[in-house]
C-alpha cells in the first residue's frame, strides 16, 4: 500500500505507552496494520516500554505465586489459550483492517449506517469513552465544515479519498491533527469516502456533528 500520511511521533509513543483512549488506539492499530514504516517506529516505542519496565524497582511478590502458576501450567491441554488470530473467522472483509474486525460485523456496505444529513452517515464503535470513535461515510463532493477541537483527532481513510489544506488522503493514509490545525476536508473521490475517526477530547459531539457537514456550494 502506498501511504503518504503517517502517525505523529507523539501519537505513536502514547499508543505504545498504553495511554491512548480506546478509540484513538483503534485508529492507530488499524494504520499500523497497513503501514510497515510506522510499525517499525512502534517497535522502538515498545522497546522504550521494555526498558522502563526493566528500570523499575521490584515489588514484593507473594511466595506462592510461582507455585500457583506452575500448577496452572500442568492443567490439561485443552485449557491452553487459543490465539485470537486463529479464532477470527477468515471471511472478514479485506477492506477492513484486522484490528477493526472485532468491532464491525461484516462488509462496510452492510453496516447499519446512521444518516445525519444527505450524503453523510456514521457508525459508532460499541463503547463509550471520553472522545469520539466511529466510522464516517461521506459522499463525493461533500465537505466537513471547518472545525477546531480541544484535543487530538485521528482520521484513517479506508475507502475513497479527501483533500484538505495539508494534502490528499487516500486508503491507508492517516490525518493526525491536534488543536493547532484548522481544516476543511473535501471528499474528492468518485465513491463515498469512509474513514475511521477518533478524538480524545470530550467534545460536545452531537452539537458539533449537527453542523459538521454541508454540501459544497462551489465557493
Amino acid at each position: 500500500m502506498n501511504i503518504n500520511h503517517h502517525l505523529d511521533d507523539a501519537t505513536l509513543m502514547s499508543y505504545s505507552a498504553g495511554s491512548l483512549s480506546q478509540g484513538m488506539a483503534l485508529v492507530v492499530a488499524s494504520h499500523l496494520a497497513f503501514c510497515s514504516a510506522c510499525r517499525e517506529r512502534a517497535e522502538m516505542n515498545d522497546a522504550v516500554g521494555g526498558v522502563l519496565l526493566e528500570s523499575l524497582d521490584a515489588e514484593t511478590i507473594e511466595d506462592d505465586m510461582l507455585a500457583a502458576i506452575l500448577a496452572q501450567i500442568d492443567e490439561p491441554l485443552e485449557r491452553r489459550i487459543v490465539e485470537p488470530r486463529q479464532a477470527i473467522p477468515s471471511l472478514s472483509d479485506p477492506e477492513i483492517p484486522v484490528p477493526l474486525n472485532e468491532y464491525v460485523s461484516g462488509p462496510l456496505d452492510q453496516l447499519e449506517w446512521k444518516r445525519i444529513v444527505p450524503g453523510v452517515a456514521y457508525y459508532d464503535m460499541p463503547w463509550q469513552g471520553r472522545g469520539v470513535s466511529r466510522l464516517l461515510r461521506i459522499a463525493p463532493g461533500k465537505s466537513m465544515l471547518t472545525h477546531t477541537h480541544n484535543g487530538n483527532e485521528l482520521t484513517l481513510v479506508l475507502r475513497g479519498s479527501f483533500s484538505d489544506e495539508v494534502g490528499r488522503f487516500c486508503r491507508g493514509d492517516i490525518a493526525d491533527l491536534d488543536d493547532q490545525i484548522e481544516h476543511q476536508p473535501l471528499v474528492d473521490s468518485d465513491e463515498d469516502c469512509i474513514c475511521l475517526i477518533a478524538t480524545d477530547a470530550p467534545l460536545r459531539f452531537t452539537t458539533l456533528f449537527g453542523k459538521l457537514v454541508q454540501p459544497m456550494t462551489g465557493f
Binding site: 507523539a10 509513543m13 502514547s14 505507552a17 522504550v48 522502563l52 484535543g151 487530538n152 480524545d200
Partner: peptide, 12 residues
C-alpha cells in the same frame, strides 16, 4: 515519557 508509560496519561 514517564507520565505516559507509567501512569497511562493521555496528552491532554
Amino acid at each position: 515519557i514517564y507520565m505516559s508509560y507509567f501512569e497511562g496519561r493521555s496528552h491532554g
